[in-house]
Nucleic acid binder design. Sequence first.
DNA 1: ACTCGCCATGAAAACGTTTACGTTTGCGCC
DNA 2: GGCGCAAACGTAAACGTTTTCATGGCGAGT
Lengths: 354, 354
Amino acid sequence: MTTKSATIRDVAREAKVSVASVSRVLNGTGGVTPATQKIVREVAARLHYVPDNAARSLITGRTNTIGAVLPDLYGEFFSELIRGIDLAARARGLHLLVSSSHDGVEDAAAAVRAMRGRVDGMLILSEYVDAAFLEENLPEKLPAVLLDSPVKSERYPVLNIDSRAGAVAIVRHLIETGRQHVAFITGPKNNFDAQQREKGYRAAMAKHAPGVPLAIVAGDFSEESGYRAARELLARKERPQAVFAANDMMAIGCLYAFKEAGVDVPGDIALAGFDDILIARYVTPPLSTVQVRIADLGRIALERLAAMLDPADKTPASVQTLGCDVVIRGSCGGKPGADAAPREPRRSRRPSRT
Amino acid sequence: MTTKSATIRDVAREAKVSVASVSRVLNGTGGVTPATQKIVREVAARLHYVPDNAARSLITGRTNTIGAVLPDLYGEFFSELIRGIDLAARARGLHLLVSSSHDGVEDAAAAVRAMRGRVDGMLILSEYVDAAFLEENLPEKLPAVLLDSPVKSERYPVLNIDSRAGAVAIVRHLIETGRQHVAFITGPKNNFDAQQREKGYRAAMAKHAPGVPLAIVAGDFSEESGYRAARELLARKERPQAVFAANDMMAIGCLYAFKEAGVDVPGDIALAGFDDILIARYVTPPLSTVQVRIADLGRIALERLAAMLDPADKTPASVQTLGCDVVIRGSCGGKPGADAAPREPRRSRRPSRT
DNA sequence: ACTCGCCATGAAAACGTTTACGTTTGCGCC
DNA sequence: GGCGCAAACGTAAACGTTTTCATGGCGAGT
């Protein structure tokens, strides 16, 4: 009929009631007779009426949307993270606005600011975010949860992965299975997790292989950098007995460098990564690693944020740390014939597109 | 100072101008003296003023946000798709609202409806969406682009993957390298791509291996289903010489079933998948497959949608199909020592988290 | 010097809701 | 039958913008 979509006034007029009553009916606020309810619902359905969210947000001050600010969307980590967030958000009737691919502090600031009035709260994962940044860019009262961040704020909860403990555990395992000389491939300089993993490596070496010289090569989380790091290690006069890479992709780069050089894994050199990405169990030999339940990270972050949305919530902001589990596979010799049959169930879920 | 964040009125008052002028300055609409511009900008910065998007949307009728409705976020396909969409959206200053994990037609309808007034346009990928669905649930004038869908509409553009041609090409390759008996593992019944891939398989067999009986086993895109399908094929009295799975995950399930059974790939049975997910090149032997540039799919869909956002746009809705490329790796014997050194660059990009 | 027109500016309407508040209605009770 | 009270309902304000239209001032052209 009309070319514009129906508004609440149209429904009210058609149903011969006031807009207030229509609003009450549709929002389930009480105080309206079943008879009128019926009429209103019928008219609303007939006109395909759907309330305009902008108008609603304007008056209520709520959008029922939360924003996720991420540096990127590439790779399994962010994919899983978003999935965890999305699932939890959906369970609470919240929508998810994503903003990714920011590459510097200015980008991040723009991303955060652009969400003003669009979201009720934010999940932020960015190496550029610190206390001053938040102070500067976040609206006064907007709840936010920080992921994977070194900042300590009495205003914003922080949710981290216990990368340090995970690193300690896997390095200890390498040492306990007989390799004293464990080399480490770092992640990007500014990445908080990467820093923690290096600390873990150093701590574990100091404790369980005291006196053994450290071997540290720089990487940037990319497979390519892992490959290069491996070649550098192989070129040294004293080859390490094991390599612990700060993430799985670099470990995989290593693996192929070793294969190329005829170095047997785990026979000549044991190998371990971090993250337990999907590929880890499909390479040959399957990669020992540290599992972090990324989707859980997203879920928990969202749940924390959702709690903050309730104005009655007075839980103080805190730094929460998620544990991770060592997963031993073939690449560090933990399991013998670990090449065949990686039938570990990933998770039980309905079949998906990929 | 105040506990509420600053509004345009606060800025106007403080700068001793009208709200209209503030609006004009901040939106870059002309007609305001450089002197007043300067003042307004200073005051706005000082008050940390950021316009409220809800109010702005209400009056302009635009949100600068596009919605992506997907069945799920799990796996590399959706991850890449979102990434492509996000990148293109960001390039246009559009925000991205995602709504995933819907599991039935009612869910999908709710997802679509919930976006009313929140988005300027939608990207929809759902097996539950057909012409009637759109008619019913989409606001009159809301632009939308359909992905991977069989519907033909003169209102909504559709963007598909040429799964059929891809399947034909890879099956032909299998036959041309000497395996007449090619078996096929299907995808989910209602998945449009899966259907197209089956059609491609049938067509290629009919054309290049006429008279050879078809061997078709049901799968659902999960690794597990590929594994089961492989076992079923192995149990048959006449084993196929090659297996083409409707996606990579199922092919990988096959691969491990074959390894378990001591069947050599590609010596005894050649193997091929579809999608070219990341893992494909990391398994041993690396998996031959059909590459679809998923991120491109997302990008192109968004660009098409962005074009529709311009009210002057009169491009008629059409069905566009994206080609895909056969990628030959070790699993079908195409390359000899393809086990080692999978140093094919995936894409060149900055190092990422995973 | 007067007028014309343009440009900067301001006042106010409009967007579509929710909700506080006021009004009507119906009903039980004295 | 009148009174009071609660439930149902309506009116209108409010949310924070953008945008139209009116107004004032000022420079240029005659």
